[in-house]
Design a protein around this nucleic acid. Sequence first.
DNA 1: GACGTGACATCCA
DNA 2: TTGGATGCCACGT
Length: 110
Amino acid sequence: MNKTNFFDLVYQVVRLIPKGRVSTYGAIANYLGSKGSARMVGWAMNAAHQHKNIPAHRVVNRLGLLTGKSHFADKDQMQRLLEKEGVRVIKDQVQDFDILFWDPNQNLLL
DNA sequence: GACGTGACATCCA
DNA sequence: TTGGATGCCACGT
């Protein structure tokens, strides 16, 4: 049965993202062991919509762009949620991204 | 069972 | 440097 563990891992990591922090698909994919499967992370996020406890708005691409905002019910919802958590988002881009960037490999390491 | 698609990332020209 | 093409894995049709 451990086939789609990838998804579960993604959900776990995304759920562990602290409030006011953001993560990236590549970082999560890297944490899962497949650095090249960044796309899979995005696909997992798409499925994450079915799950309510998945703060997908905290997951952005490597550039800090809210690329997936279009997949939200309201494209402003994602940005709004981030701003509500203290993350400045301008033009769908996370400001101080390198500072707010939360890497599972850097925090969940060990 | 096979092909195409997808919220990205990386390499090559 | 910028732009185009490929790779990754799972899901949908």
